[in-house]
Amino acid sequence: MDDQVWITLARALAFSTPLLWAALGEIIVERSGVVNLGVEGMMILGAIAGFAVAQTTGDPWVGLLAAMAAGGAAALLHAVFAVLLRSDPYVSGLALTIFGLGLSGLIGRAWVGRPLQNAMEPISLPGLASLPVVGEIVFGRQHILTWGGLLAALILWVLLHHTRLGLIVRTVGENPAAADAAGLPVLRIRILTVVFGGVMAGVAGGFLSLAYRPSWGQGMTNGLGWIALALAIFALWDPLRAVFAALLFGAFFTLAYSLQSQFPPQLLTMMPYLFTILALTFTAVRKGRGAFGAPEALGRPYARGER
């Protein structure tokens, strides 16, 4: 039974990897005041680009670069529409998801139904993997990107909260007018964060098609992009909290398969969303109205002199 806990943790780590990468990206995007509902679209474009390039070159890491580039390019589209042209960010994000799902399917026709020749192999973390009981189960065979996601969360947390760069991003998201007045290039920063978010979603998609399930299938992200969006919010826009949130989401997902004789799996899979609402409510009640850390200017395109 003790093993069961560690097994759940190990699977939660693996399953939460794509969620974490994509959510970290979205956290940075939303911290700068932009909402991108196109995570699912960017993720799946990353998945097909990664797969196609890895299959062609034989190197999954080159594939990962392609996945990042594809995610970033897709995000650039959103940046142009939602930030530069100040179109509606929600429609732009939704359009990006629809477009991404369609385009990836179209490109993917040539790649469907074939396994990846050289997939990313899981690794054993030296030292930690030889711990008794926990070691082999938790540290024995995870992907590099799983540990990479945790590291990325730490780095982003430091950047966001303890560097000038982070302060700039947060200011742009909290009060773009003030940032502008202070001489910060608001739009340029937002474009960069949106593209960064796309690159991170690309990593998430690449992980799926290169490591988690090394093959291409149409619609293989299967809603994970939307979960990542929920996750960014559930984590209250904090990269470190995102790690725990991702693990919790991952645990619920895997438990839906190990506890299903005791509990309806649909209701277990529903929990993360319910928890997100509860987390927001609880934080608001505890800290007072609206004080749960949502970037003040979230979702509002910025133009000087407008509100």
């Binding site: 589209l77 429609v91 359009a95 990006l96 369609g102 385009l103 399917g105 149409q218």
Partner: peptide, 20 residues
């Protein structure tokens, strides 16, 4: 191919919001 419908819907949406 069936996937083209997603691409065309996306194109329609993107050009409409691009025009806004």
């Amino acid at each position: 191919p069936s996937q083209i419908t997603g691409v065309t819907s996306g194109l329609v949406l993107l050009s409409i919001i691009g025009s806004e």
